[in-house]
Computed example of a mutant assay.
Amino acid sequence: MTATRDSSLATAVELRAVHKVYHRGTQAVQALDGVSIGFATGSFTAIMGPSGSGKSTLLQCAAGLDEPTSGQIFVAGDDISGMDERRRTALRRDRIGFVFQAFNLVASLTAAQNVELPLRFAGRRADRAEVARALAAVGLGERAGHRPSELSGGQQQRVALARALITRPDVLFADEPTGALDTKTSREVLALLRLLVDQQAQTTLMVTHDPVAASYADVVIFLKDGRIADRMALDPADASRPARIAAQMARLEA
């Protein structure tokens, strides 16, 4: 796949003083408390934090899946916080890719047909060569005709990744993408995410609880109680990355 996203923008995603409050009966729960942060174009960011820290809420708001209570969110330069649902839906369809822990493939469709789905939903003709390139990019060029039941968990997640990238999104959001995979397969999927960043400048934001998974990123953002608690830049040559990340998580959970 040849990236066509706008790489001229220094920041692919930006949150400005974002608050998110959920109301549960008479109780108000503040999931995000004035978060301001930018995510550089072409970078790989891992988002971590204790349970209830707000990491999934941050991802959902940044991706336009949920609305902030206040503040602004920009995706590829566009302010999505003021968009109505129709415009947010169009933005998610055309400019954002999603990969989740659950592969969410349609069991009755082949790998190629699953990858085509975002194009069909957008009313675009699915070009066979384009789909073939997407599958080849994730190492499944020879599996186009296989259904999910004929693929391993790692292969299914690769199909989900190809599906997320077929629209050449400005940003790829990944929510625990290796949570359902064994250790070996997880490393393969993470290495592929890393390769997409390095070779195609695919901006990627990944929520994870796994220090090893986070160690594939360029930077780790730590959240606690809805606020940014720390930021750790990673050197790919530093073999102690997972241990350093785990130690910081332990401090936050103490």
Rank of each mutant, 00 (worst) to 15 (best):
L172V: 10
L32R: 13
L181F: 05
H23G: 12
L91P: 01
T203H: 08
D66W: 09
S53P: 08
R95D: 12
G179C: 00
E176A: 00
S152I: 10
H209N: 01
L119E: 04
A129N: 12
S240C: 01
Q72M: 05
T2C: 09
R163K: 06
A137F: 08
I166M: 08
E188H: 01
R227T: 14
A3Y: 10
N114Y: 07
L181M: 00
Y22W: 13
S53M: 08
A62R: 11
P177S: 04
Q113G: 03
L105I: 03
L195A: 15
A40C: 07
D84G: 08
R16S: 12
I166A: 09
S43H: 10
F39G: 11
A12D: 03
D210C: 02
A214N: 04
R125E: 13
L151V: 04
V171I: 11
E188T: 10
L181Q: 00
S56C: 10
P177N: 01
F121H: 06
E253D: 14
A213E: 04
I96K: 06
F222G: 03
Q113A: 14
D79G: 06
A112Q: 12
V138I: 02
M83R: 04
P169N: 09
L105P: 03
E150T: 00
P169A: 08
N114I: 07
P68T: 05
L252D: 04
G38L: 10
L190N: 10
Q27F: 13
A136Q: 14
L119K: 02
E253V: 13
Q157I: 03
R143Q: 11
R16G: 01
P211S: 08
R241Y: 03
P148V: 02
T185C: 01
A250H: 11
